[in-house]
């Protein structure tokens, strides 16, 4: 077990986007709910859960996309006996962990105030947490893997936001086929085919694990990170 101090340093290295993104996402969701002209109905509850299922994952995904490719001391990192990919994984864990704290606390408040239950497809207070866990892990992993492949936050962040936008605007198309249904990010608040919800959440978590594993394999080639690729 490495000292807590090391995790504190990695939290700093994860950057402001990782720290501020999730609370801002929740704040935007709450603001949108407050601006709802018909407060108290299921639409407000949907907006609040939507902040957890849509906004927090997007913030976490963009923050994870910025982890690779902007480290000024990358050569020192690569020459250290602690593998750099482990360091990057630690930063990803910190980023997603903080998003989970923010989302978990928000969900607790929604449950305590009754807003959680007002959305008919809420899936309960326990299993229902997969509402934000699955897409946050999924988009976080997409961002991390894209960062590893593209070696730059801009391209990786663009991929995350493009994927999120496509699922927002072409959700109906995505749901016409089984793979699209299983990897649909917004199955709680935008609706899943009946019986698909649990499989969808588990598929997203599985895809996240596979993408992180892929990223770790790519990051093992240290020379890619200093721009010196073999022929």
């Amino acid at each position: 077990m490495r000292p807590l101090t090391l995790w504190r340093y990695e939290a700093r290295r994860a950057g402001w986007a990782a720290l501020l993104g999730p609370p801002i996402a929740v704040a935007l969701g709450v603001s949108a709910a407050l601006a709802n002209p018909r407060p108290g109905d299921a639409t407000t509850a949907r907006i609040l859960l939507g902040a957890l299922e849509m906004a927090v994952p997007l913030a976490a995904g963009v923050a994870c996309a910025s982890l690779v490719g902007r480290d000024p001391a990358v050569e020192l990192q690569l020459a250290a006996p602690t593998p750099y990919r482990v360091t990057l994984l630690r930063r990803m864990v910190v980023t997603l962990g903080w998003a989970a704290v923010v989302a978990g606390l928000t969900a607790a408040v929604l449950i305590a105030t009754g807003w959680w239950a007002r959305w008919p497809a809420n899936h309960g207070p326990f299993a229902g947490q997969l509402t934000w866990v699955a897409p946050t892990a999924g988009l976080g992993a997409v961002g991390f893997a894209a960062g590893a492949v593209f070696r730059g936050p801009a391209a990786a962040g663009a991929l995350v936001t493009t994927l999120w936008t496509i699922q927002q605007f072409f959700g109906d198309l995505a749901q016409r086929h089984l793979p699209g249904r299983l990897l649909y990010l917004f199955a709680t608040t935008r609706g899943a085919v009946p019986g698909d919800w649990t499989e969808n959440r588990l598929a997203l978590l599985g895809a996240a694990a596979a993408l992180v594993a892929l990223a770790l394999v790519v990051l093992a080639r240290s020379e890619r990170l200093i721009g010196e690729e073999d022929e």
Binding site: P3, P72, E75, L76, P81
Partner: peptide, 28 residues
């Protein structure tokens, strides 16, 4: 190892920077 283009973390103090790198080098 001291690379040709030494990059540092500008938000850290010299003491913090060395402390962090010592951790990465296994000085727990």
């Amino acid at each position: 190892y001291l690379p040709q283009d030494l990059g540092v973390y500008p938000d850290l103090t010299a003491r913090q920077f060395l402390d962090y790198l010592a951790l990465l080098k296994g000085v727990d």
